[in-house]
Amino acid sequence: MSDEEHQFESMANAVASKTYPQQAGTIRKGGHIVIKNRACKVLDVFTPSWIGRRHSHVKCHFVAVDNCNGKKLEDIVPSSHNCDVSNPLYTDYHLIDICEDGSVILLTEKGDIKDDLKLPTDDARLTQIEDGLLMDKELVVTVMSAMGEEQICAIKDISGTKLY
Rank of each mutant, 00 (worst) to 15 (best):
L119T: 00
K59L: 09
I113W: 05
K118M: 10
K71T: 07
C99R: 15
V77T: 13
I96V: 12
D115P: 00
H57N: 14
D112K: 11
C40S: 01
L134F: 13
I98D: 00
I98S: 01
F62R: 01
N37M: 12
S80F: 09
N37L: 12
P48I: 02
G52F: 00
K71M: 06
I51A: 06
V63K: 13
E100L: 13
K114P: 02
V45N: 02
S49T: 11
C99H: 15
N82D: 14
L89M: 10
M135N: 15
V65Y: 01
K59Y: 10
V85M: 05
V65W: 01
H57S: 14
G102F: 08
I76A: 12
G111H: 06
H55Q: 13
V42I: 07
T108F: 05
I129N: 03
I96N: 01
I113S: 04
R53K: 15
E130S: 15
V85T: 06
D97H: 08
R125H: 11
K110Y: 09
I76F: 07
Y93T: 03
G70K: 10
D112N: 12
L73Q: 05
D116A: 08
D116W: 04
V104C: 01
P78D: 12
L89S: 13
P78V: 05
A39H: 05
G132F: 02
A124Q: 13
V65T: 07
V85D: 05
K110R: 12
H94R: 09
N82A: 13
N67Y: 04
N82M: 14
K59N: 10
R54T: 13
W50E: 12
K114Y: 03
Y90N: 08
V65S: 04
T121P: 00
I113A: 03
V77Y: 04
D122K: 11
D112C: 08
D97N: 12
P48G: 04
T121R: 13
R54P: 03
D112F: 10
L107R: 09
T91F: 02
Q128D: 07
F62G: 04
Y93I: 02
S103H: 14
F62S: 02
R125C: 08
L73D: 01
H61L: 10
F62I: 03
I51D: 06
R38D: 06
G132I: 02
G132P: 02
L119S: 01
K137T: 09
L107M: 07
Q128E: 12
D92L: 08
A124P: 05
N67P: 04
D122H: 08
A124Y: 12
T127S: 15
K41C: 03
P78T: 05
N67D: 09
P120Y: 01
L43R: 07
S86W: 02
H61I: 08
K72S: 10
D116Q: 09
C99L: 14
D116R: 07
K72N: 11
N69R: 08
D115L: 03
L139K: 01
G132K: 00
